[in-house]
């Protein structure tokens, strides 16, 4: 099912960001469609970006892993 595939592809930070975005939409009550989109997309992008940065800084390097093996 497509929905399951999409859910599998989505990362944890994206899901968390979407939830935060929905909470912001509920609180801020934007008047336009663009505002709603921005409020959901913003946290998703920020959370995903933070995850990437954390991974780059603290995640294991796959090249080193390959060399070690």
């Amino acid at each position: 099912m497509d929905f399951v595939k999409i859910a599998r592809e989505l990362s944890c930070p994206a899901i968390a960001g979407a939830l935060v975005g929905l909470a912001l939409v509920w609180w801020v009550e934007p008047a336009t469609k663009g505002g709603t989109t921005l409020l959901i997309a913003g946290p998703v992008m920020i959370f995903t970006l933070v995850e990437r940065v954390v991974r780059l800084c603290f995640g294991r390097n796959s090249n080193v892993e390959a060399d070690d093996s």
């Binding site: 008047a31 336009t32 469609k33 505002g35 709603t36 989109t37 921005l38």
Partner: peptide
């Protein structure tokens, strides 16, 4: 926040 996202979200 509401005014800001309404202004820039549409753009």
């Amino acid at each position: 926040i509401q005014l800001w996202v309404d202004r820039f979200g549409e753009n």
